[in-house]
């Protein structure tokens, strides 16, 4: 029962011959060797496997890879192309929003998906979204602060661009 599946991950096309029962997270990690996405519970609660599917945060443990053919999948590896951390990753580092780092890729992708959708999110709204995923190290506060800080910086940068284009 092998199935041909074509996946688009981080803008790259992959042709796979896999059992249809393979979950997206297992395919990302073990077939494509993109091990930045982690596995924490395999029943959709911890969120360590969160990736973006067509821009929206989703649990990669609750998707079969075969289901997301044709979708644009983004993983944590897409955030720091060229080796430089992006602004969100830098905010996590500055705020000490990670300790062991196991939940971190899921938190990052959750935040990226959410902020793209809701750039004006308040800190309380961010906190509620962070509640989607489990972290056992930080107590969450610094994760919320990191995402909130990043959102503020992005808004300021956008305003700055608007101001400059207006002048």
């Amino acid at each position: 029962m092998i199935q041909l599946v074509e996946l688009s991950v981080n803008g790259e096309r992959h042709d796979l011959a896999i059992e249809p029962r393979r979950t997206l997270v297992d395919v990302l990690r073990h077939d494509l060797r993109l091990t930045g996405t982690h596995v924490g519970c395999e029943h959709g609660i911890c969120g360590a496997c969160t990736v973006l599917v067509d821009g929206q945060p989703a649990r990669a443990c609750l998707l079969f890879a075969a289901q997301v053919e044709g979708a644009d999948i983004r993983t944590v590896e897409s955030l720091s192309e060229g080796g430089a951390l992006n602004d969100l990753q830098q905010c996590f580092s500055e705020h000490h929003g990670l300790q062991c780092g196991f939940c971190t890729p899921g938190m990052l992708m959750l935040a990226e998906g959410y902020l793209a959708d809701e750039p004006d999110a308040t800190k309380e709204e961010i906190r509620e979204v962070v509640a989607s995923n489990l972290c056992r190290c930080t107590g969450y506060q610094t994760i919320v602060e990191a995402i909130d800080d990043c959102a503020s910086r992005r808004r300021a940068a956008l305003q700055d661009r608007l101001d400059r284009s207006a002048s």
């Binding site: 969160t50 599917v53 649990r59």
Partner: peptide
């Protein structure tokens, strides 16, 4: 649930 559940 939470956001990533609601998106799917």
């Amino acid at each position: 649930g939470h956001l990533p559940i609601r998106t799917r």
